[in-house]
Amino acid sequence: MWKTILRRVVVMIPQVFILSIIVFALAQAMPGDPFTGLITPQTDPAVIENLREQAGLNDPIPVQYVRWLGNAVQGDFGQSYTYKIPVASIIGQRAGNTILLSLLSFILTYLIAIPLGMLAGRYNNSWLDKIVVIYNYVSYAIPTFVLALLMLWLFGYTLNWFPTSGSVDVTLAKGSMDYYLNKGFHLILPAITYALLGTTTIIQYLRSEVVDAKTQDYVKTARSKGVPEKVVYSRHIFRNSALPIASTMGYQITGLIGGSIFIEKIFAFPGMGQLFISSLTSRDYSVIVALTLLFGVATLVGTLLSDIIMTIVDPRIRID
């Protein structure tokens, strides 16, 4: 098992390198340099040239790449063109919100998907199963931004059940109980939207696994031993069927990243996805580069996690 995991980690190293080269190339193609915004038309060209020389912008590209990568590994992405503070601290302010939202969405996804998948599989071809299949089909087909907008319009504006923007009510004192409750309250609607979109694969998988398991010998044995039907499902079948679901966990991270751009924009939620869009609008390239690299690495790690979980739960794919 360790061999497989090690091999998988080794495969990831060139991937991270290629990703960093792509991002670096994109950064080179972007207009502007670290001094954009610091220079006024009155600045002497000689001073600019001197600054560029000192910052190493006249070095050969490979040298610049190595230096850039070294800085990036240490979390130094330079200064934001717009805010004039280090990029790392801007992202730091937003990262907490995105992680919190992703975590809640992640939990909600499984809370919704596992019962629905189990019930649909257990009572397959019943009306309940049909509803779950229809739900699954709609959640698969609907684009993220359409669902998010409809949710915001219906529950946020029309029914007034949830706040429509932001991550917390600014009037509340930081650290108080109300502050945290309010923060959680702001998270609910975007998290549910996320979760509804993430359930599709899990439900589909779980349902067909359970339907298949019903006729298997171990289930027949359990039944003939007199194990109550409820326990047959909650213990015997669930444990076997849930294994493939475990491997989807890492891929959920990938989905969350792509979705965060849409969800955070629509719910005006101050996270990294919204920062990405607003940086594009204000042409704050150093922030864009940092976020692209960060999200890229996060996706790679997500896929890695999926593969590792898979090798742990399923001995068949291990190599010896």
Partner: peptide
């Protein structure tokens, strides 16, 4: 495994 949406957006802007 690339974050496709983000990369497309970045390509489009530059």
């Amino acid at each position: 495994v690339l974050p496709t949406t983000m990369l497309i957006i970045v390509f489009i802007t530059i």
